[in-house]
């Protein structure tokens, strides 16, 4: 090979790699690329059966898997002891104002803690179920809190987000998914 061409190879490789990393960063900001995320086994499957008791802060009692039908519902696992949950509280309140049906699952939390959390950061949830033992969390395969799922009107899980929901994802990816499964 021509020596000059050969000497250009490192530069060309760097440009290609750089372009790839740029694409990753862009898509990561849009929420369509998550190198860390383990894909949820639940996507495309029905919600595992559960029935959770109501929380004192819940507006309309607890809920079970059969309640997650009829319309697309966003399910959010949260806990008062979780700092990232405070981070996403504002975004969730925004979802509530936008009229998105949002159900919360208080994961391994104390009643008093949940109450204080909702009093301080607002209650975005139409319903709250208490998962005190964390068994429902295990069935859903959550990796931690917060974690957000979209369940379509037939009760099939369509989308998941791990960690505090950024405003861009709520307004972007989640909104698109909600429209797609409306």
């Amino acid at each position: 090979m021509n020596r000059r061409v050969l000497l250009l190879v490192p530069f060309a490789a760097t440009v290609v790699a750089g372009g790839g990393f740029l694409a990753m960063l862009k898509r990561e900001q849009e929420g369509t690329f998550d190198p860390r995320g383990v894909p949820s086994m639940l996507i495309g499957k029905r919600v595992p059966p559960f029935a959770l008791p109501a929380d004192a802060g819940s507006l309309a009692g607890g809920f079970s898997d059969t309640d997650l039908t009829g319309r697309p519902i966003v399910v959010n696992f949260f806990a008062s002891w979780c700092v990232p949950c405070m981070e996403e509280a504002e975004v969730l309140m925004g979802l509530k104002q936008a009229g998105v049906p949002l159900y919360g699952i208080a994961y391994k939390d104390k009643q008093a803690g949940t109450a204080a959390f909702l009093a301080k950061h607002g209650n975005p949830y139409a319903r709250i179920g208490r998962d005190d033992a964390g068994l429902t969390g295990i069935d859903w395969g959550i990796t931690g809190v917060p974690e957000t799922y979209l369940v379509d009107k037939t009760g099939v899980v369509r989308w998941r987000f791990v960690g505090p929901l950024p405003a861009e994802v709520a307004a972007g990816d989640l909104k698109r998914q909600l429209q797609a499964y409306a």
Binding site: F11, T14, V15, G18, L22, K26, E28, Q29
Partner: peptide, 28 residues
Amino acid sequence: DPARGVFILALLGLVIGGSLLLFALRAP
């Protein structure tokens, strides 16, 4: 923080890409 990532990537591109381009041009 992905928002900071683009800035850093641009810097990396300038330093690494710039020096390798110089290498391609001047190494002969």
